[in-house]
Amino acid sequence: MSGFISLEGKRALVTSGTRGAGAATVALFRDLGARVLTAARSRPDTACETMFVAADLTTPEGCAALAAAVRDRLGGVDVIVHMLGGSSAPAGGFAALGDTDWAREIALNLMPAVRLDRELVPGMVAQGRGVVIHVTSIQGRLPLPAATTAYAAAKAALSTYSKSLSKEVSPKGVRVVRVAPGWIETEAAVRLAERVAQDAGTDQEGGRRIIMESLGGIPIGRPSTPEEVASLIAFLASDRAGTITGTEHIIDGGTVPTV
């Protein structure tokens, strides 16, 4: 990869970059020469050579603090990767979701990107260059009604917002793209497979199969790895992708069954 693309000298912000695909993205960006700042609610226990800010990005104050740190510690930014996302909504379909659940999903999956872009993209426009990568989800087009309605709707909103932003700022030198992962085999995903396997009386591979079947199947036969997702993000952030903007790039092993 390093022989094909370079992020040498790029100043990058990667939100939620301490675990999973976020941590893989931070590591790859650093390997490719970028200066990286990342943020999460708390510093990980493991030693971290990457610049780090503790911030709750579901709040306006947390986003403002992170944006100030980007300006102070990086002197601006060339690449923003909005990796933050997730869901804590209860299962049970639409009727199980109260206003608090909806507000929580939107606060986590949409508003941090909106607020940080509002703080930092004007600086990209002023310098005439930059890349914004919004990490959405295939759930935006393939929701699971029993469990992910609010999450999927928030990610769909992020996708629409991203497209609108791209139309506004691409003529000014700032590319805006989306990466939509399917199931990623993070540490949390491994633990989920183990729990599913235990409940079903099977082994971990059987648990993985149950999860893949719940998604409608993954034709390639396995989830994506964090490193594979990071590689796609790094390519899109690089100058090799210089005319790619306004588009969504799915990495799901073929889970989405439509064109």
Rank of each mutant, 00 (worst) to 15 (best):
L108P: 00
S6G: 07
A237G: 13
P122W: 09
T245D: 02
A113P: 05
L108M: 11
E105R: 03
V36N: 00
G173A: 13
S2T: 13
T15K: 11
A96D: 05
M124K: 04
S88P: 00
L84P: 02
A193H: 13
G86D: 03
P145W: 01
D117R: 09
T149H: 06
G3F: 13
E61V: 13
V26Y: 02
G20L: 01
G92R: 03
D78A: 05
V135E: 01
Q204D: 05
M51R: 15
A65L: 12
R71D: 15
G140C: 08
R178N: 12
A23I: 09
A107R: 06
S42I: 13
A39K: 09
G86A: 09
L32R: 05
A197F: 01
I250G: 07
R175I: 04
D56S: 10
M1T: 12
A180R: 04
D72G: 12
V121F: 00
G33L: 03
C63Y: 07
S2Y: 08
T18E: 02
G20F: 01
I138D: 11
E194D: 15
T58A: 10
K10Y: 06
A21H: 11
A180K: 02
A234Q: 02
A113V: 10
G246V: 07
A154I: 03
G93H: 03
G20N: 00
Q198C: 12
L215S: 07
P226T: 08
S16I: 06
L165P: 04
I233E: 09
M124L: 13
T46I: 14
A64I: 10
V190L: 15
R191H: 13
E194V: 10
G98K: 06
T149P: 00
A241N: 08
S87F: 08
D239A: 14
S238D: 12
E185G: 11
M212S: 14
L144F: 14
A23N: 09
L57G: 05
P60L: 02
